[in-house]
Amino acid sequence: MPSIDWSDYQAFLAIARAGQLAGAARVLGVDPTTVGRRLRRLEASLGTALFEQTRSGQELTEAGESLLSSVEAMASAAGRITEHADGNDGLYGTLRISTSEGFGCWFLARHLPRFQAAHPRLAIDLVASSGFLSPTRREADVAIMLSRPRTGPLVAHKLSDYSLRLYGTRDYLQAHGTPARPADLLEGHGLVGYIPDLIYAPELRYLDEIQPGLKAAIRSPSITAQHGLIASGGGLGVLPCFMADADPRLVAVLPERRIVRSFWFVTHQDIRKLPRVTAFRQWLDETAACMEGILKP
């Protein structure tokens, strides 16, 4: 069997992480044709297909999944050797974090620069959106999820609980009245919430926990858009306290009706001991503990 160039393994790893030849090429600083040629050379040397072409990009085959953990370990070892030679103990490479829009934009975005400043050689991809990238498919190194995964080769631990309440503006309450009990919300009040068939996690179905039968009149899959709608007087709506309590335009309505959810730190079992993952987990655990009064007032 012909010898295999390390650059072929690097191409394989970049494709596995990016999910596309073009994305891998950008990471490696070469053109997609070169990445494709290296992949074909590696597959020919190993005698097996490592990816399947899908509509969304490249997905690992069973053989590719088996190879990935070994190549991750090789890349980690190579990085440690380089760091030792350079006399630099800092983290390196890329850490991709997938999280909900609210936690990513309103919590992580405010604290993450401190972590990156402590590790300047580490590039951080913060993917904060309505939905999660999959650690199982290696779309992200870490996912901050709303529930603990029950299947897949994943490890998870609870990061923190967080609180949500119903909020509105003072002007809205002056115009429509302040509800004294949850049943008052059924008449005379406009509600802001999620589009039912676009809710990406069952933990986001919480209007019925305020009062059974509540339905939103203005709806969006984006918690940032919902926040804007509520803060502009468009209605009452449920928001995470760490978002709403920082906005002087908003006041809690029926504050005794507190909803509690949880954030879970999730990663693939094969990379849970990578230095960049363990360092980020420790930092995030410490940050969440310091901010417990904001996350769960």
Rank of each mutant, 00 (worst) to 15 (best):
M1I: 03
M1F: 02
S3H: 07
I4D: 11
L13M: 08
A14G: 15
I15Y: 00
R17K: 13
R17L: 07
L28C: 04
T33K: 05
G36N: 10
G36Q: 13
G36K: 07
R38S: 08
L39I: 08
T48S: 02
T48M: 08
Q53I: 14
Q58W: 02
T61S: 14
E65W: 09
E65C: 03
L68E: 10
E72L: 05
M74G: 03
A77E: 12
R80L: 11
A85N: 09
A85Y: 04
G93A: 15
R96P: 04
C105S: 12
C105P: 07
R110P: 00
P113H: 08
R114E: 06
F115P: 02
Q116K: 13
A123H: 13
V127E: 06
A128K: 05
S129G: 05
G131M: 14
S134V: 01
A140E: 07
A140G: 00
A140P: 04
L146R: 02
T151E: 14
L159K: 11
T169R: 11
R170W: 04
Q174L: 11
Q174D: 13
G177K: 10
P179W: 01
P179A: 10
A180V: 14
P182I: 14
L185F: 08
E187A: 10
G193M: 00
G193D: 02
G193I: 01
P196N: 13
I199M: 11
Y200K: 01
Y200P: 00
A201P: 07
A201N: 13
E203P: 01
L204N: 03
L204D: 02
Q211R: 12
A216G: 11
A216V: 04
A217Y: 02
I218F: 05
S222P: 13
G228Y: 02
L229W: 07
G234A: 05
G235F: 00
L236T: 00
P240R: 08
F242E: 15
V251W: 14
A252T: 14
P255H: 01
R258T: 14
V260P: 07
V260M: 13
S262E: 15
S262L: 03
S262N: 07
W264F: 14
T267G: 15
T267H: 09
Q269D: 10
R272Q: 15
R272Y: 05
R281A: 09
D285T: 02
T287V: 12
E292A: 15
G293C: 06
G293H: 06
P297C: 09
